[in-house]
Write a protein that binds this DNA or RNA. Sequence first.
DNA 1: GCAGCATACTCAAAAATCTGACTAGTCGCA
DNA 2: TGCGACTAGTCAGATTTTTGAGTATGCTGC
Lengths: 190, 190
Amino acid sequence: MALRHAVLAALLDGEYSGYQIAKGFDIGVANFWHALPQQLYAELAKLEKGGLITGREVVQQGRPNKRLFTVTDAGLAELERFAADTAKPSFIRDDLMVKVHAADRTEADAVIEQLEERATVAEAKIAVLTPLLEKLRGDLDEAEFLRVGARVGPYLTGLRGLSFEREQREWCLRTASVLRARAARERAHV
Amino acid sequence: MALRHAVLAALLDGEYSGYQIAKGFDIGVANFWHALPQQLYAELAKLEKGGLITGREVVQQGRPNKRLFTVTDAGLAELERFAADTAKPSFIRDDLMVKVHAADRTEADAVIEQLEERATVAEAKIAVLTPLLEKLRGDLDEAEFLRVGARVGPYLTGLRGLSFEREQREWCLRTASVLRARAARERAHV
DNA sequence: GCAGCATACTCAAAAATCTGACTAGTCGCA
DNA sequence: TGCGACTAGTCAGATTTTTGAGTATGCTGC
């Protein structure tokens, strides 16, 4: 049950609606968590019932009203408690890696295509993250920001996201080219 | 329902028992998938019932008997089908990143400790993966192996795992040192 | 003038995953 | 000789996550 903490952490950056959180707009959280809108709405409702966040209705004209949530002191205390107890090991699950693992026993064409597609997605994430980190940093250079800047948390997780996406892109492109070369070789030998 | 495919991919490397797969001994699969023993046993049973794998009983003395599984032609065809349709985006879930995201609003000491612990774990994985990749490679150098070697699938996923663990280690150490420096600064100012 | 997309959610049900306990023999250690 | 760890699993039940559908309004492009 760590989704609850991911949501609390996301709300530290300000007031957000379920819809906004669901959109994954938030740099930090999107880098290490993924959940469907339905889960988030349910979790927000539970958190509010438990008094860890409070919502306020914002009436909008021209579009549906929304509820913006803020972390309460109790919520902060819960995060504190969470930070103190031992973390579960991280885990990745990746369909594409399963396919690559089996790539020398199956037709590789489709996998190559997906690897290149995935590299493009990584590229796009890099293009979003880079300016976001710059914005967080403000006038300070990175070393200085990390030393004294406010809100380093999101910056640090953003850095991890960025490095992950860079590695992902490189690996996808390299793997695609390896598989492509082998496919060509195989065709030549048959 | 991709666990089924992860298991099939793991079994491509040879005959394994549920227990062995559960141990995560397999380089490739451990790099992109994680599941509890109970899930694996259940999945193996389903796959066998579906004819995608076959098991044979191996009688052992001095320890319980075991069942070793092999992928059938039907299983290979299923993997082929799986490789062809579109992959879901990868996702990571990481408690520790949640904690870092909130680190500037909570007590950081415990998080720093966990980051250093995580770096050690990453180090250990690097220490396991590096010789495993060497072994897979045999006499060939990497470029040559990738061009003509057998079983490149596991090698390629192993490379991704290795790069992930390296980045993980660096990020954990750097993040720990950033948080440590800030905690010291804060104490000095109070 | 209407199709499709965006905002902002809700509900129910199916499937996957995790928690926790249990069996049962063997080996090493003190 | 008893304790704990390792091999090799099984079972039940709770919780989480995913799938799929639905509501309602407004704006934009063709």
